[in-house]
Design a protein around this nucleic acid. Sequence first.
DNA 1: TATTTAACATGATAAATATCATATTTAAAA
DNA 2: TTTTAAATATGATATTTATCATGTTAAATA
Lengths: 233, 233
Amino acid sequence: MPQITLAMNKCDQCIVRQLSSLKALNKDEVVKLANSKTTYTIKKGEAIFEEGEVTNGVFCVKDGVGKLSKLSANGKDQIVKLVKSGELLGQRSMISNEPANLSAKAIADMEVCFIPKSEIIHFFNNNNQFSLNLMQSVCEDLKESENDKIALVQKTVKQRLAETLLHLHEEFGENPDKTLKVQLTREELAGIIGTATESCIRLLSDFNKLELIELVGKKIMLKNVKALKRMAE
Amino acid sequence: MPQITLAMNKCDQCIVRQLSSLKALNKDEVVKLANSKTTYTIKKGEAIFEEGEVTNGVFCVKDGVGKLSKLSANGKDQIVKLVKSGELLGQRSMISNEPANLSAKAIADMEVCFIPKSEIIHFFNNNNQFSLNLMQSVCEDLKESENDKIALVQKTVKQRLAETLLHLHEEFGENPDKTLKVQLTREELAGIIGTATESCIRLLSDFNKLELIELVGKKIMLKNVKALKRMAE
DNA sequence: TATTTAACATGATAAATATCATATTTAAAA
DNA sequence: TTTTAAATATGATATTTATCATGTTAAATA
């Protein structure tokens, strides 16, 4: 049965299969997965789904970077979470049986696979390790969200910027020229730390003058990680 | 077997069993639950568990109100969530296999039952409806936390106070004299909306003058729900 | 290449909120 | 009850951050 082997291999080799809750799936389940998935290419700036949309499944991020965000009344886009390759997207809404609470958009060109809800629920009901993994993943998101919430109240914008730069460095790494690999606009960065774009730009300038970072065009290089960490406290 | 019937009834009648994920348990499982639980009484102000503590199980809130909070460096207590009777406490840490990220303290005298982790994991692995319920409950918390996070950035303190007063009214109801049933200090209220205690007090005074609320000693009565809703937008 | 547009940058100012000081009231303890 | 401590209240002020204005640079498009 060459097709089945092919289908299995397709997902079996995938980074999402290796990193996400899906790692708990057995061979048969991976075959089932491969046969039900749909692959999409999302260009930078495009949406995977919008707030209020019913998705009826989850998206596997094979490649690229995405943002989960909510548009405010005054037109500002508050970024709740960044997602990178290996992660699942839309788990929460699917499990809660609700339309998406947030929009998902590509920050860098993305390749994603859609897995229908029926598949996920089937795995959830028949594979304890998978359901535990999925549960832990949502719990991880919850912990992060709660900590973000606390940071928003207990820390200044300056501290949050330092913290966020360190996070971005840790999570996404750096280019050969030592600049941050995730290429965010100042507006997006402001959307993550929860401040006005101008304030974000101003603080980046300050950090630059203090030699905590270096601004290489629109890119950012961390120059003094230790001092940034001290500042984030 | 009178003991077994007794043991089952004990938890079967319980409000937590009726409202939480535990509603999915069958009779045998409820008996198992009743035999493994430990009941505690927590006086107002006392802690159920502290940040950093390993709990190794979950707490069922039978009666009273609790707060999940984190102490900041400057001594302020940021409240992440309030819990009331019928809810479970400590699910996230237990599933993530981590020490508690937050402290849980009683705001009103509480009665709670402790259920060891082994029991919960057993139910999780053997009862699909239970695991789905638990999952949905964590998802609900996540959604709420994300929305809180967005509100912290996109709304003013005034809007958040209006929003919080409405939430407290909706979630906990009112006393016979129409005042809010949850009795929070101004400091705690400030800890929920994420502001300084004085700012919170000042705004309550303003709301009082505007006849949106009425301050009855330390208690708060909502007088103009419609206007509060408009203000929260 | 020239032109246009978007992103970045910075100053000036306004608004929101925190902090400090100090009463006043309420509740707890001696 | 008297005393003490804690919670509430409010004014004055400082700080943080947002907003508006405007200029500069970089990048996209004609």
